[in-house]
Design a protein around this nucleic acid. Structure first.
Lengths: 296, 296
DNA sequence: TCCTGTCGTTCAAAATTCTGAACGCTGCGA
DNA sequence: TCGCAGCGTTCAGAATTTTGAACGACAGGA
């Protein structure tokens, strides 16, 4: 990388202001700095970003491409800055959040102490519910929900884009070997989270699309931790979010079955949903960052 | 933002090398530069990144948080650099790609001329198929597929995370007003793309989860453009990827019906899938970047 | 306990970048 | 056709950053 990241904000400003003079004003620096920064960036990248004769300019095709990337870089930088600003501000005040039962128990609870220690002045109120979005406007500052909520005036941040994976206990597998193929797998599924219990679950096996019936003759529970507990005690094979079985797989109390089968479903995604990205309170930012880190 | 982006790569190097000396070696700069860069960054951010006594150091909690953001910034920067390098290299050679019919016709075809003009030396071969992944290893360099393929040794780049939206022609709506509520909507759906034609399509209406039967008594076609053509000619209301109806909505030949209904489904996602991110040929990178830009 | 190798910091000189005024060019209106 | 206003570029001095060597501090082995 033979170019300087510090010239990126300058270039973005020039493109967005439509000229160096405007950019210079926006950035509060002399226009000569802007001019040299652009020249340096072009030299470093080895391409011409702006087609310019001494009076006007337009963005070249390559410049357009680079601009898109530059925006992303800047966005990340601003995100980092906002997070750090939040850390420094020692966020305080009441923060009410809605969390689904399993997520709260499995991911948040074990780390709650660390959060309270890092932000002792945040008065965190947790509401356990699976329908957090309904409370979003009136009663809670943020909700963790299943899926990838798309709503024009809500901001969604994906926490777990977790794929489902099929697992079973070693004891069960020893007693009941699983045949190859989807049908072999299907015969061992006794129990499944309600959300995944659809008749034609689309799956991929080594790139091949197929469907799996997760409804007929299968019991359903609307809590993944119940399914996990059952499977740990020998209730056959069940598809579960990888995030909830990672530890068990590592320590050997669960074994992945046919890991080549991937499930094409949004229902295993968990997202944090809140109102505005720009006017996010430091305490909300701190908590969302904390969740994102906990889910890594 | 009171800190310099140029110090970010230095910090990342220090964290990853576990020390300033190692980082200095990696970056090929004197360690004094590394030391001052870190000190400057800490001052600019207003937080302590590394807890260090004159011999060793460890990353603080805040430093860990910032490191994650720093990685993202750097990743974006590298991505930008690779793209520009690709542009400059004047990519050449044969590139074979697999595209689904509707996507190729609607998104790629109108922009193909621009691509050929920008990269005249790329000998582009297009295979029209809906099962591009199957060809991925042997016959094509890249495939555009429906969904969000998760496969350990495939790289996926989401092109359209498009939500579905329900549309109808103005003439149809004038003659057949749609009642409020999901059931009102349901009565007008006559036709639907095969992929969305499931019995319990999960939807959200203003945050409330619900399901919509898109199977019983509905005709299915496995091509969204056919559905669109039919709806344009009065075939009731149909859910379609927003990306395929954007132009029609703008020019008024289609109208959104109950836009507050959002569909929770991956089937409307389109992704580019290819083998390796690191060893991507310049021509493949050029084409994937072109697709991403076309889908913006 | 002392020695030694290694690590991060400091400092003044050197290189680089930044700055503001002057310059030259171009599009627009008269 | 001409003149002016506004834009990007240039240039030399000023400010900042970079650099390599010297320094101080600590861990581990003798």
């Amino acid at each position: 990388m033979r170019w300087s990241l510090d010239d990126v904000p300058v270039y973005v400003a020039v493109v967005e202001q439509g000229g160096m003079t405007g950019a210079a004003e926006l950035l509060g620096r002399p226009k000569s700095s802007v001019s040299t920064a652009i020249a340096r960036l072009e030299k470093g990248l080895g391409i011409r970003l702006l087609e310019r004769n001494s009076r006007s300019q337009r963005v070249t095709a390559e410049g357009e491409t680079f601009y898109r990337h530059a925006q992303l870089i800047l966005e990340q930088a601003r995100e980092a800055d906002a997070t750090v600003a939040g850390l420094r501000a020692d966020p305080a005040g009441r923060l009410t959040v809605a969390l689904p039962p399993a997520f709260c128990q499995e991911v948040v609870a074990p780390r709650l102490h660390a959060f309270r220690q890092a932000f002792p002045k945040i008065d965190l109120q947790i509401v356990i519910t699976s329908h957090g979005v309904d409370l979003l406007r009136e009663q809670v500052d943020m909700a963790v929900v299943v899926g990838r909520m798309v709503d024009s005036d809500l901001v969604t941040r994906v926490l777990i884009a977790g794929a489902l994976t099929c697992v079973a206990s070693p004891a069960y597998l020893a007693a009941n070997p699983v045949d190859e193929g989807l049908e072999g797998l299907r015969r061992h599924i006794q129990l499944c989270e309600t959300r995944y219990g659809i008749k034609r679950m689309p799956v991929h096996v080594a790139g091949q699309a197929a469907v799996l019936d997760l409804q007929t003759g299968i019991s359903h529970v609307n809590n993944p931790l119940v399914v996990r507990a059952a499977v740990l005690n020998g209730a056959g094979v069940a598809p579960l979010p990888r995030h909830y079985v990672r530890d068990q797989i590592r320590e050997g109390s669960l074994i992945e079955v046919q890991p080549e089968v991937t499930f094409d479903i949004e229902a295993s995604t968990l997202s944090a949903v809140y109102l505005s990205r720009r006017l996010m309170s430091p305490r909300l930012r701190a908590f969302v960052d904390f969740l994102a880190e906990a889910c890594r």
